[in-house]
Amino acid sequence: MAKDAPPFCKVFEGVVHYFLHDHHLRLEENILYDENKFCEACVMPIIEDEFYSCAECDFILHETCLKARPRIQHALHPHPLTLKATNNYVSSWCTACIRICGGFVYERPKHECYFKLDVSLTFCATLPYKVRYKNDEHFLTLSWGEERCEKYWCEECEDIVEELFYWCNDCCTILHTDCLLSESPYLKPGQVLKVGGKCIKFSPEVIFLGQFAVTV
């Protein structure tokens, strides 16, 4: 691609061609939450707002992720980084957040140095602002402990909650971020993690502790 080329081009109204996918993507509006729909780029579930999907396969992108620049210059690395799509076999970690990258990553096109940056970090989204929890019908939002005068306890571990936590204002449901989010939130069901010559296939139970859902 040219240095400043856009990540997609318009085919006609509501249909685009994305540079990391072979088929055209169509603009759709998410009406009902489907726990099996995941964005290929950030690996967060498709919960609300508009998204782009492929009619010929399961490729889906949030509108925000569709607009992520193909090439960036990041403060953590001296060389330009190129956006790359991953496949079902995952063996890389984000150099910045040290998390497994199951979605798109920015990396060096050559093997001169190892540097991979999770595409989510370019949106300042290390923790999702809004989530869903299996025992609450409402969204939970990310909150800070000092916002509450009283002490609260986590719904899962029943320990006291301090600093960052997820909170439902309607039901007073509260959870630690670690109790709600798994250690590998950026892997999709069916992806295979390759570690030390061994392969581990991830299922929804492995990836999502507590059956949560996330929106970006």
Score class of each variant (00 low, 15 high):
187 L>F: 14
138 H>G: 03
145 G>W: 07
121 L>W: 00
133 Y>M: 04
111 H>K: 13
110 K>C: 12
181 L>G: 02
141 T>Q: 06
98 I>R: 15
111 H>N: 12
124 C>W: 02
139 F>N: 07
201 K>C: 11
212 F>E: 02
163 E>V: 08
140 L>Q: 03
130 K>G: 01
209 L>W: 04
127 L>K: 04
154 C>N: 08
175 L>E: 01
170 D>V: 06
157 C>A: 11
142 L>Y: 12
129 Y>N: 05
199 C>A: 14
108 R>T: 08
156 E>R: 12
207 I>G: 07
169 N>H: 04
105 V>S: 10
161 V>Y: 01
111 H>T: 06
120 S>K: 12
109 P>K: 10
190 G>K: 09
142 L>T: 02
177 T>K: 10
167 W>V: 08
167 W>M: 02
102 G>W: 06
136 D>M: 08
122 T>M: 06
212 F>L: 05
141 T>Y: 10
129 Y>M: 03
115 F>S: 09
120 S>F: 00
113 C>S: 14
201 K>G: 05
109 P>H: 07
124 C>D: 11
180 L>R: 05
189 P>T: 10
105 V>E: 06
196 G>R: 14
94 C>K: 00
176 H>S: 03
138 H>P: 04
163 E>A: 10
168 C>I: 03
144 W>V: 10
201 K>F: 01
149 C>F: 01
175 L>T: 11
143 S>M: 12
140 L>R: 03
159 D>A: 13
109 P>L: 11
204 P>C: 09
132 R>M: 11
119 V>C: 12
183 E>G: 13
101 C>K: 06
201 K>M: 14
190 G>P: 07
150 E>C: 06
135 N>K: 14
157 C>G: 10
156 E>S: 13
136 D>A: 10
97 C>A: 04
154 C>V: 07
146 E>A: 07
125 A>I: 02
105 V>W: 01
144 W>M: 09
114 Y>Q: 13
211 Q>T: 12
166 Y>V: 03
165 F>D: 02
202 F>V: 03
205 E>I: 13
129 Y>D: 07
137 E>D: 14
106 Y>V: 09
177 T>I: 13
101 C>I: 15
198 K>S: 15
104 F>H: 11
109 P>T: 12
198 K>V: 14
208 F>A: 13
116 K>V: 08
207 I>L: 14
195 V>N: 05
150 E>W: 02
96 A>L: 07
112 E>Q: 08
144 W>E: 15
208 F>I: 02
133 Y>R: 01
137 E>I: 09
153 W>T: 12
190 G>E: 05
157 C>V: 10
122 T>L: 08
151 K>D: 12
207 I>E: 05
113 C>Y: 11
170 D>Y: 01
154 C>L: 09
101 C>H: 00
97 C>N: 03
148 R>N: 03
125 A>Q: 11
203 S>K: 11
139 F>E: 08
140 L>A: 04
117 L>E: 04
108 R>M: 12
118 D>G: 03
186 Y>S: 14
142 L>R: 09
97 C>E: 03
190 G>W: 06
103 G>Q: 07
121 L>P: 00
204 P>W: 09
204 P>L: 11
170 D>C: 00
